[in-house]
Design a protein around this nucleic acid. Structure first.
Lengths: 301, 301
DNA sequence: ACTGATTACGCAGTACGTAATTATA
DNA sequence: TATAATTACGTACTGCGTAATCAGT
């Protein structure tokens, strides 16, 4: 086991920085020559090249390098786990939690949950990382976030463990006095108006598309946002009718009318996810439980 | 990440050697004081004790230590994987393979498979590690073996990946001129004789016990062995009737009679197993395929 | 010319070994 | 008294930084 962990980490950083040794050196707070030397030593020990070179320029990472980088990920995770366990034992009531989530969850679902959490763990720092579901998954993989809360994508990733949180439905949000505020609703009627909803990859957008397509209806979705509030604002301004998560309009609001669309789109499921092999600090485990509790209580009256 | 890998490995060795620092030091080819110092430094860094001490004696590993040891396992696996991948790239046609298996597989199923394997990879060294199924699983976990081939236990272990290999049945092995060589067989008739079969935990022994118990029959199993050959020898000497895997008596043999017992005991399944996160060298992957091929061909005439 | 990788050399810090010290069984 | 862990001290080695060199764009 002469192979040093630091050498492996350097390799990872080089590979993840476009094969630029200088940049990698900066990130590890050492000079280029040091990195160059360590990588040479590693190559010597393995008896194989880590890069395809053109003179002194690195052209391409070998398959070996890529395989090593994967293993380094797992090693670094284990190292972080050790630190996390130690933190738990030192003082399980303080620390930090990084929650990757979407705007909708952060604004409409999480506030009461985090309020309860904060009462139990007043010393834990809570950080939000926002992004689309694809980005959230990446954040988990890269160790930038501890847990993710969102609606799509999470279920299909082998490396993730997920918990069910809550089910929700879409709703129509209309300007006051819009013709759709009256009478029986139908996808046909809705399709005749410009539709304001979430950007692709977000909070159930795919289900909306599909429902209209299945009925052979084409819709005008020239306006989309990641964010229910933005959608509501433009609905108010008369840009069209909004389709948003029902829970993102909890209270009646001046100038807006909400109508349920549960009959037209399938239920969406919000889930909690984290990396399978990651050690969850005790307060994170507790937060996951809180999320499940609050989630299941949403259904009940 | 000041935490050094070597420190963590020392900790693991100490924990796995009854908290004896001196012994751990020997295993790593350093002196006691060095280990003692490194562990102190690790404790300082983590800010927590790794052991409960009574004066200068180590009494007990803390939960923290145990958690660390787990993570170290995963780190060491990753390191070995890196070496394995490198070996593959250097020369994928040579190396070593350590097969953990039982006597029955080693003697009656594996020979033709390994013959085929040897022709493809003449330079690969093949090592057998024999043991009972429980030991085989431990060998996989501890990295002493690359793959295991056996009948029981393998299916329930979360950390293992398994492949189906082949199904087999039990058979009765009798001395010539035994009364059971004639007439219709039944568990009742068999139960009237002393039964020679495998020791507990082996090759379907549990299924034998159960079949008799389900019929309310008690059997005399005062003699048992891990090994079909031993059983056969004693059957020949008139110690009783043998129940063995049918495939461990492929050819007629002077003084012995074989009768099928497929109707009385459920089929047993032989499986191939290896650690989920382990990198399999290409020739190991090939061997697994060979095992599956030969296994599936057993059924066909 | 300039960016970026490799090689050469002196220096500092880390970790080992020897040995003395302390504590338990 | 014997075994085993901790502490003290001198030494060797590993790996950094500075700087010079070399190779592409």
């Amino acid at each position: 086991m002469l192979m040093k962990l630091f050498q492996l980490q350097l390799l990872k950083t080089v590979v993840n920085n476009g094969l630029n040794i200088s940049r990698a050196a900066d990130q590890h707070f050492v000079v280029q020559s040091a990195v160059s030397r360590q990588l040479s030593l590693l190559e010597d020990e393995l008896g194989l090249p880590l890069f395809e070179r053109k003179g002194k320029r690195l052209i391409k990472a070998t398959d070996l390098s890529l395989a090593i980088v994967q293993q380094v990920d797992s090693i670094e995770l284990a190292m972080e786990n050790i630190r996390a366990v130690a933190d738990d034992f030192r003082d399980g009531r303080q620390g930090e939690i990084r929650i990757a989530t979407t705007h909708m969850q952060a604004k409409y679902f999480l506030p009461p949950v985090l309020n309860a959490f904060r009462q139990r763990y007043p010393k834990v720092k809570v950080n939000f990382l926002q992004g689309n579901p694809g980005q959230l998954v990446r954040m988990l993989h890269d160790g930038e976030a501890d847990i993710a809360v969102c609606t799509e994508e999470l279920a299909n990733d082998e490396a993730l463990l997920t918990h069910h949180c809550y089910d929700w439905n879409h709703a129509l949000i209309l300007p006051e006095a819009h013709e759709l505020t009256e009478g029986e609703l139908s996808l046909e009627r809705i399709a005749q108006h410009p539709i304001l909803t979430y950007v692709l990859g977000f909070t159930g957008r795919s289900k909306i598309e599909k429902a209209f397509a299945d009925m052979g209806l084409s819709i005008d979705t020239s306006f989309s946002a990641t964010d229910s509030d933005v959608i509501k604002s433009y609905v108010k301004l008369g840009f069209g009718v909004g389709i948003i998560a029902k829970i993102s309009h909890p209270n009646p609001e001046e100038g807006l009318v909400l109508r349920d669309l549960a009959d037209f789109f399938p239920e969406s499921v919000t889930r909690i996810a984290y990396m399978k092999n990651k050690h969850l600090k005790n307060y994170i485990t507790d937060l996951v439980e809180l999320l499940e509790d609050f989630g299941s209580r949403l259904k009940a009256p």
